[in-house]
Design a protein around this nucleic acid. Structure first.
Lengths: 233, 233
DNA sequence: CGAGAAATTGAAAAGATTCAACTCTCGTGG
DNA sequence: CCACGAGAGTTGAATCTTTTCAATTTCTCG
């Protein structure tokens, strides 16, 4: 296989502030892989053999409870680093990562994390900054789950997805990968029934337009009002 | 003031793997402070001027929503590092820290984080490991909030407190600082009324024994059954 | 001892889930 | 190429957990 070109990753957040030679050094040790939608990138409690950067596609990170219920912990978008158990002092993955759309991924052996992150301090710094941000996000979600009703949580979740992965269309902003009512339910701690009812209601009010595995936010502003307001309107 | 002795902090997790001279170097730059119960150590959105290690007492970390509702993000126990916004690439504190009991705290200026963590790599490594653990904890809480009923969440919260800060007494294991129904409600995303009803019910079944600002877990095993079971008994 | 904080408890109301039945959509294999 | 079947979505009705509202009581600290 031809060597990967540094321009591939130069502009991605995990590699900010790194020289071209450093990028080349990193790429030399990376393995590129392709995962079709639905494929499992790594599995909860499995040995953390690699860490990853997502070049293209979307990844859903899911935790499964002992009772078998699934909760989506976060979505990974293009350019993000993930599966960094090693950097956090763990030897197994804390969740399962599933390709939500067809993906292109770079993978490095976990064993090289220590060496790579000391040799390229910017990589370490960028990663820890990312982890800090995710801790923030997780706390924000705990706060939302504690204080908001389902309607607001679903509105927040859609707005977040739209900001992260939105693609302009003529109708509004579309979430850029196939997403079901069930998926949204697993992000918000609701049932698919409630999510379905909410989307139906919003559709009839012209806030969203949705179908099988497809959600388009037509009026982000009014959706934001729902997300923020304590009152029922 | 006399110099602080390395033996004070030698055995605390943030300083694991450090030589006595390193500890002395760290202590030289630390400032010790005492905070009475109820005092604010740092405030949400305030400039992150310092980071801290708790030597004695308990700290409650709280996020306040724009609507004024409070959610307890975590409790800090003896020996933990906290207020490490700088290490995560932030310049302000993401939450408010309040002394839940009288506290003794070491504080370092945030400006020294970069220098200290490079000069003492173990400090950096230990800290990032801690952050990783907290990210895990936060995700665990999201999962709990998504899948469990209030009864189970409160049971889990009590068990967690008892493990973290429990003190053996003749009646059972007591939570080692004053804690109100309201505090428990803010940890679990419930109302103080529901928490009060649950504690009353558990008290009459002999699982806990509680009073004003006081909770003793009498029968951890049966409480664990409640925390784990999907069914109402 | 008095006052404010903390806790309790009943009754009504609300939000969301559960149960159940049905429809729609899309891809595949006969 | 069309029919079929599974996955995805919808929607009504009943149920249930938890909150909300409200009125009291209990504690403890100054």
């Amino acid at each position: 296989m031809a060597a990967l070109d540094p321009s591939l990753i130069r502009d991605l957040p995990p590699f900010a502030g790194m020289a071209t030679e450093e990028l080349a050094d990193l790429l030399q040790r990376a393995r590129a892989l392709r995962q079709p939608r639905g494929a499992t990138v790594f599995e909860q409690d499995g040995e953390a053999h690699s860490f990853f950067v997502l070049l293209d596609g979307h990844i859903r990170v899911v935790r499964t409870t002992p009772e078998g219920q699934q909760v989506t912990v976060r979505y990974i978008s293009e350019g993000e680093i993930f599966g960094i158990a090693a950097a956090l002092g763990r030897t197994t993955y804390p969740a399962t990562a599933i390709a939500a759309a067809d993906c292109v991924i770079l993978a490095w052996p976990t064993a090289q994390w220590a060496e790579l992150s000391t040799r390229h301090p910017a990589l370490g710094a960028n990663t820890y900054k990312t982890v800090g941000g995710r801790l923030q996000d997780a706390h924000t979600r705990v706060v939302e789950m504690s204080t908001e009703q389902v309607e607001q949580r679903v509105a927040h979740a859609l707005l977040r997805l739209v900001n992260q992965t939105g693609r302009r269309t003529e109708d509004g902003i579309e979430i850029d990968f196939p997403i079901t009512r069930q998926d949204i339910a697993e992000m918000t701690g609701a049932t698919l029934h409630t999510v379905s009812r909410l989307l139906s209601a919003w559709e009839s009010r012209g806030l969203v337009s949705s179908g099988r595995r497809r959600v388009v936010v037509v009026d982000p502003h009014r959706l934001m009002l729902i997300a923020e307001s304590r009152e029922r309107e």
